[in-house]
Write a protein that binds this DNA or RNA. Sequence first.
DNA 1: TACTATTGTGGAACATCGTTCTATTAAGGA
DNA 2: TCCTTAATAGAACGATGTTCCACAATAGTA
Lengths: 198, 198
Amino acid sequence: MRVVTTRTSSHLVEGAVRAAALQILTQDGPEGFTVRAVAQRAGVAPMAIYNHFHGKNGLIDRIFAEGFADLHRAMDIDLDDPVDTLRASGHAYRRFALEHRGHYLVMFLHHFEGFEPSMESAELAARAYGRLVDIISRCVDTGAFEPLDPRRTAQLVWAMVHGYVALEMNHQMFADDAEKTFEQMLDTMMAGLAHSLR
Amino acid sequence: MRVVTTRTSSHLVEGAVRAAALQILTQDGPEGFTVRAVAQRAGVAPMAIYNHFHGKNGLIDRIFAEGFADLHRAMDIDLDDPVDTLRASGHAYRRFALEHRGHYLVMFLHHFEGFEPSMESAELAARAYGRLVDIISRCVDTGAFEPLDPRRTAQLVWAMVHGYVALEMNHQMFADDAEKTFEQMLDTMMAGLAHSLR
DNA sequence: TACTATTGTGGAACATCGTTCTATTAAGGA
DNA sequence: TCCTTAATAGAACGATGTTCCACAATAGTA
């Protein structure tokens, strides 16, 4: 005898799964992120994740792409001074990570087995990186920074900011005040960029 | 009918397993790192990993601790100038990561499900961090750096260097010359520390 | 309102994973 | 030589991602 108790309305399935996935990622981390667990929390059959997304990795890719779109929006800052813009972008990056733990986990912190971003997702990521290159180019053009290669400089700026945020989110902090330590990191970075190479 | 073909000598088992584990981590990454795969490559029964280590996580902890001991050794640098020492330590850190991919993966790059460092391992890690704090303290004492809190400054120095190395090892590099980019990162960091806070 | 196509459901099944248990038997010291 | 030690093969368990299936609730249409 078969009993199909309830059934989530077609349109609500994707939203429910998405919300459940983010909730589990945020609360339990990648370890609790299983197909069955997400489905259960969403009040949905495990099969839904294969019907609406393309399995677990498809769901991850959805969150990945969505995260980069959000990050791009969060960092859409354009102050008069490009140096101020760069600093504000650093703060925006950290704030995004703290407020979108689930997204950030998927985007930067954890490598899920067998997951590779789709073409579209990778392009979104590249575009976010392009913005960073642009800002740094403007800093160089105005003479605020030494004549550095913007592409290379973007790489190390990203490394520094992301490196710090990753440690903070993984609770690998030995200093007491995370906010103040981040501020000092930005100070160091900005001062170094302005005066580096002698 | 039972056929136990050959049998690895007691003393050699641990070494064989250790070597196989590092080889798999280095070549295949965390995804290929399964108990059965390690045992097979070591020419040993899967049970050996439970007899000689304490399961998969025990083996990981062994590599973790060994890695920190090696890193501590690699960074045991003491030049006359503490600023030179800090810069040399940065280079040593990166070199260690590149030359000990397997160890670095376990120590910093990948979080294995359910793995938590043992007390002894955590202490080894803390001691390595302590060295960094000491070097920075000396930089502050000699007046080479602004009067920064060494503990906090160590946090952001680690974040910057590790952030860069992590990107390089994950092949998330958009700049061409990794060596030169790292050099510029150290330049920026050192210059920023010397002149930050006005 | 009645009918039908869509599609979400529960459940079984598969291979693989870490892990435990068992019985066998090779290795090494007495 | 014998006997203890310990490394082996293999089955088994639960959990994982994934696929397939039969069934029925939903939604649109006649």
